[in-house]
């Protein structure tokens, strides 16, 4: 019974982590059809945006909720202005350019911080169910993921900003004729996607630590979650995180974490064979 409860918490935690690390990518890919292979590095920059201020004595919550999103968001705006902007409509070239960027960021961070893994201390203590102790931080991650998804939903669906963004993505010329500058919308969307990713990195930092090469481990997972989810940004990310999170944790439970990740990746390939348009290409079609 205790084991079952812990396992369920771990599954929900895994789903939340997947959703957190993918939502920024889903915004950028879903709205702009831009493949951002530097996504993992945005996540990595988010972890450093917690680690470095923490060393200087800044409160962890301030760096998590304020410094990380703003810093990585600004990086995103710069990247859009300097690189991505020149490559709209050339999907493959964007992929290559952002990959070059990813290598560049890894290289720069390795030069500055060295190729080492540093930990960020976890706020909150442990709780226990029966004999098994678990970190309370897991609940924090679950709560943040749920709140973030809800926030993205509300912004996209009910605010003018969301309307403008959705309108521009559907038909940029029409939006332009109505007096909205698509170029500004693109920059803002990319910046917000980057900020979300930076925030996710910051929230996950106490769990995953901070290392220059950290992004590589997460970019593939984030991508298959987004692509497995399909067209709809929110329902897609949520449903794909659900499916892959369950696969990962169940296989992990019966074997090892590494095989769990391998199973997640293989599951994604099989899912795309059956549903090439992703989950929302077949189910929840009217989702956002």
């Amino acid at each position: 019974m205790d084991v079952a409860a812990i396992t369920i918490i771990q599954i929900i935690n895994m789903i939340s982590m997947l959703a957190l690390m993918s939502i920024g990518l889903a915004v950028i890919f879903g709205m702009m059809r831009v493949i951002n292979l530097a996504h993992g590095e945005f996540l990595m920059l988010g972890t450093y945006a917690v680690l470095v201020p923490a060393k200087l004595g800044v409160n962890i919550w301030i760096s998590m909720f304020i410094i990380a999103p703003i810093f990585v968001g600004l990086v995103g705006v710069l990247v859009e202005r300097i690189i991505v902007r020149r490559l709209y409509g050339r999907m493959m070239d964007t992929l290559l350019a952002t990959w070059g960027l990813s290598l560049l960021i890894i290289g720069i961070m390795t030069t500055i911080f060295g190729n080492t893994m540093e930990g960020v201390s976890t706020p909150f203590g442990n709780f226990s169910i029966g004999e098994i102790a678990e970190s309370q931080y897991k609940f924090f991650i679950i709560g943040i993921a749920a709140a973030l998804m809800a926030a993205v939903f509300v912004v996209l669906k009910y605010t003018k900003l969301g309307l403008i963004a959705r309108g521009t993505m559907q038909n940029a010329n029409m939006a332009s004729a109505l007096g909205i500058s698509p170029s500004t919308v693109y920059t803002a969307t990319f910046g917000i996607g980057a900020a979300l990713t930076g925030f996710a990195g910051a929230v996950l930092a106490p769990v995953i630590g901070a290392a220059p090469t950290l992004g590589v481990a997460y970019v593939a997972k984030a991508f298959i979650t987004v692509i497995g989810g399909g067209q709809a940004i929110l329902t897609g990310t949520a449903s794909a995180s659900g499916v892959f999170g369950v696969i990962n944790q169940v296989v992990t439970y019966f074997s090892t974490p590494v095989l769990g990740e391998v199973a997640l990746l293989i599951g994604a390939v099989l899912l795309l064979r059956v549903l090439p348009q992703g989950i929302t290409g077949r189910f929840f079609r009217r989702g956002l």
């Binding site: 690189i83 020149r86 490559l87 070239d93 290559l96 350019a97 990959w99 070059g100 960027l101 990813s102 290598l103 560049l104 960021i105 890894i106 290289g107 720069i108 390795t110 030069t111």
Partner: peptide, 17 residues
């Protein structure tokens, strides 16, 4: 002195752009 990734990344970026 320099991490090789910096140079590989820069080469890729310059060529694509």
């Amino acid at each position: 002195t320099i991490d090789p990734n910096v140079i590989l990344g820069a080469i890729l970026l310059v060529f694509v752009l």
